[in-house]
Design a protein around this nucleic acid. Structure first.
Lengths: 277, 277
DNA sequence: CAGTGTGAAATCTTTCACAGCG
DNA sequence: CGCTGTGAAAGATTTCACACTG
């Protein structure tokens, strides 16, 4: 499955596995902490512990970047911080726009982790006129009418969607049309994007559901594991309808991305909008 | 990412692959949407498109749950909704506590996706006395002094950490000691938990960094790809020491998939103490 | 005959374990 | 001697492709 984009012409060994790319930020964080404490070097064992992985995996990951360690000693912290930052493209500045300034958008806007890495919040955008001009986290909110102009002027290529699910696809379309090629989606919807655009999804409710699955299993293990009999609620007949759940209106959230695999762009083909309009 | 937990005791016929479990919530959401529109059946092709995966994968996933489809026809929506909900443990109610009611915590508290699934926000907890009693999303915030009592009384087994990184481990320890066995961590820290406790991490800055990696690659491809020279910033070859506080008893939970980091107010928020003391 | 269910092949990841360098 | 770097083995996940059934 091509990375969405054309595959590398087999030329360079530039082929870093997605699983490794997903861990690079983890290592970088641990290394930065060490760096701040002026720790000069670390062994794979120590760094692995700090990053929460095992040392064999870490060494293998680093081997894809090159041989940056010293046998018998370990890795030079500063040097590695630089190499990984470069590999991730953090040595340059990435202007980012956040669309949808509700509680979540505000939380994201105020997140210090942005600036400390190569990211800069170029603009906060919201469709509510009442929000326009209001400063959030020190940055004045701009109206969505100006979305295209903002993106063009700042040369933004990364957009964060923190809007309600209902308008996420529309916002996404505008972002893409305006030139954004990477999107971080917090709305519980599957976004369809043209080839060449990357989408990563973050979904709170999905994570909880996965936890629930394991939690349930734990509970079952304590007893004799009943393996649920699977009694259908009303036999499998078609017709009928109306979800019983307390679905009070809008959709529920989920859909998730695996850090392990590259959260590529949308569906294989063109996901037909499932949104109830 | 089978976190802390031990491996499948081999006995389990309930051996559903992690990758599949992670996609179940996606299918569930797509199915719920169909259900609301009173669509009686779907083919693997249609459902796959709606969920953003390919049909072969979906069919394989479902095959782990059993044969719930009808050849030549497809799947009964209602029936499948029930089966997946049960498999995920969503047919029961999961009380959840959210610790750290900053912007992010508030966003989570007001997130409708929780209630509509099997989750119920049992309590909002914050260490700031000024917050105590203040209602957020209709739920009064309680002081962290009562954390243990709250968890015990409500039988909470899932906790969400939305605090600044600096106190995340301490909060985690208290949650675990009080009986919580599943944690969703929004703080940018690697949490250490005893065996048997699951931790999933959501980190915004990690997601952005992964996007940056791909974004950078795109830019590079447009030209002739320069593959950066990799000039070290200084390269220090120090001798030794640096004994990081490496492992302290507990196991390091990694798991984690997506990422979105918490906004909370703290100025730092990233690359904080990876190993205090 | 449309569409599921599934062995088997193709890929991707993780883990092992050890040669070899500083 | 200690620790990195890495082939090779072991696992996990995805994709194929097709027999088979309602």
């Amino acid at each position: 499955m091509a990375t969405g984009r054309t595959h590398r012409p087999a030329t360079r060994s530039r082929g870093i596995p997605e699983a490794t790319v997903a861990r690079l930020p983890l290592y970088l964080r641990a290394l930065t902490a060490l760096s701040e404490r002026s720790v000069p070097t670390v062994s794979s064992e120590e760094l692995a512990a700090a990053a929460g992985v095992n040392s064999a995996k870490l060494r293998k990951d680093f081997s894809y970047l090159g041989s940056y360690g010293t046998r018998g000693v370990g890795y030079d912290v500063e040097y590695l911080v630089y190499q990984i930052s470069r590999e991730l493209g953090l040595t340059q500045d990435w202007p980012v726009v956040i669309v949808g300034i509700g509680n979540l958008g505000a939380a994201l806007a105020g997140y210090g982790g942005f600036a400390s890495r190569g990211f800069r919040v170029a603009a906060l955008i919201d469709a509510d006129p009442a929000m326009t001009g209001k400063p959030v986290a020190g940055i004045p909110v701009q109206h969505s009418d100006d979305l295209e102009k903002i993106i063009a002027e700042d040369g933004v290529s990364i957009g964060v969607i923190a809007t309600p699910a209902g308008v996420a696809q529309a916002v996404c379309d505008r972002l893409v049309a305006a030139g954004v090629t990477s999107i971080l989606n917090f709305a519980p919807t599957v976004l369809s994007v043209p080839d060449g655009v990357d989408v990563r999804k973050v979904d709170l409710s999905i994570e909880l559901q996965i936890l629930a699955f394991h939690e349930q299993r734990k509970a079952g293990e304590e007893l004799g594991e009943e393996t649920a009999p699977a009694a259908p609620p009303a036999a499998r007949t078609t017709s009928d309808s109306a979800r019983t759940g307390a679905d009070n209106g809008r959709a529920t959230a989920d859909s998730a991305r695996s850090a392990a695999d590259g959260g590529r762009k949308g569906p294989d083909g063109d996901a037909p909008a499932v949104m109830p309009a």
